[in-house]
Design a binder for these strands. Structure first.
Lengths: 288, 288
DNA sequence: TTCCATTGAATGGGTGATCCATTTAATAAT
DNA sequence: ATTATTAAATGGATCACCCATTCAATGGAA
């Protein structure tokens, strides 16, 4: 990949022999050449260009989930970049949930079905960085869940209601056996099922992301203090009954009241409710 | 960084001299050593470990926006990894909006204030990958905007209303001068301002992300067919008046009716409304 | 003194060669 | 037929460079 002769790689014929630096930048040659007076504030870097090109192919429908990109060595050569910088791009896309990299012969970079959990990470980062506050997140959650109840009442199907019913049974069992943290896990799942019952994956994704963070706080609280929401399964059953009856007003009222009591639980002894404790590490079932 | 003596780097003393491979993996040594029977499905890779560690420092509050990480060469040495793999991690974090990499002496990796636009990219990818549909996105937008109206009526401050007023004036000007695409840009800004007036950045972030996608479709439609929503500024003024009066019912009704007419506009000649056209490339003001 | 050009070091951006570990298909041995 | 063995392809990681940009320090000119 250089004008200097490589000791091992066979000398590939080239129509022109641009130097290394020039080839590295010619991905963006046209763009920079078109701006004679003003140079861009922030020079476009190679890996950004690569990411964008792959995303472009995706948006264009040329690349679809399940497709495989050429092998790193080959794709790097096609793009005229080093393998290292190509890997930076692939890594970024992998973190974005767009690709999955798989080793071995018959391995490669495969376009994935979108990973909706990615939004969780966005929320987590925003919270870590102080861009959003816990208060804003809680408030948003209450409002969005209110919306979810409306949509769930309108759209929930039998299978959704059954799944919620099964979840409540697991919650009861965990309660009886005193597995408090498992019960938190059940709660997380409950909201996930509820969100799914709206039939709208965008809404569901949003709800899941705020719920995931919220549950970290609940988990941390329960783990540290051992408190437990009283009559949880019972309240859930009442709510599910209202949902089954498509009674938006009642379901909405029940959920809101429950959310408020949870909030009170979290806010007592506020010193213990550290952002850092809740976010610090991954908890069971909350991977990523 | 190797047991083989480097020709230039001074030989650093080591208590043990593990080979290169071992050092590369010892970040996760404890984890793998603790599972004698079952090996993990998906071996943890170095860059993932690095990303997680940095995020951990972030969640712990050890790293805050504005802080600078050690230089690549030094940090790589501290972590016992190669500079290349460290860069893969930094790249991923940069794409995630957590870091900003800056060249030159006094440059480095700086922790950023969170970039809320990141959620836009998530939405865009989900749409590209077919994980969510345009219908779901539109539906979610209607519902979420309904929520926004409620919150805006409750929380909008004078400055928010003034900003909306100024935006409407720009819209009028663009209309008079026939700058249709600029008017689309005004619309995008309008919803952004409206979302901000809720006073909740989580809600605002969500609204912005769905609006950004929606506006790509509007942009593509206007650019291709030259159609223009009639009496746009006028409708906006009516809405703003209702908002100023804190009249949730009226504001909500006005907005919903407007959204429906926009939807009708988009859906006429559905063949032209290609997902690919709308998502394919970056448009003015819609960077990222 | 003040101002501006020069220089040099630090830093991110990028390259190419090389090795390791994993996976899988082809092949050989049983 | 079944089971080891082998070989090739691929991602994972490293090393040693080089380039381009930035900025503080330096030093000479006004």
């Amino acid at each position: 990949m250089s004008t200097k002769s490589s000791p091992r790689a066979p000398q590939r014929p080239r129509t022109a022999s641009p130097n290394r630096r020039e080839r590295a930048t010619d991905l963006r040659a046209a763009a920079t050449a078109a701006t004679p007076t003003f140079k861009p504030i922030h020079t476009r870097r190679t890996f950004e260009e690569i990411c964008e090109r792959i995303r472009e192919q995706l948006a264009l429908g040329v690349l679809k989930p399940g497709d495989k990109l050429p092998a790193e060595r080959e794709l790097a050569q096609q793009l005229g970049v080093s393998r290292n910088v190509l890997r930076e791009a692939l890594r970024s896309l992998e973190m974005a949930g767009v690709l999955r990299l798989q080793k071995g012969v018959k391995g490669g970079a495969f376009i994935q079905q979108g990973d909706t959990r990615r939004m969780n990470e966005v929320m987590r980062d925003m919270l870590s960085l102080g861009t959003i506050s816990v208060r804003e997140l809680s408030e948003a959650r209450v409002h969005v869940l209110d919306l979810v109840v409306q949509l769930a009442c309108a759209n929930a199907r039998r299978a959704d209601l059954d799944a919620l019913e099964a979840n409540i049974e697991r919650t009861e069992l965990a309660t009886k056996e005193g597995r408090l943290l498992d019960r938190v896990e059940c709660s997380r799942e409950f909201y996930k099922l509820l969100a799914a019952s709206t039939g709208n994956k965008v809404i569901a994704m949003i709800v899941d992301s705020v719920t995931e963070i919220h549950m970290r706080f609940v988990y941390a609280k329960v783990a540290s203090s051992g408190v437990a929401m009283a009559r949880l399964a019972e309240k859930r059953r009442q709510f599910l009954a209202a949902l089954s009856e498509r009674d938006v007003a009642l379901a909405s009222r029940l959920l809101r009241s429950h959310l408020e009591s949870v909030q009170r639980m979290l806010e007592q002894d506020p010193g213990a409710m550290s952002l850092h404790v809740a976010l610090a590490d991954v908890q069971p079932g909350m991977r990523r």
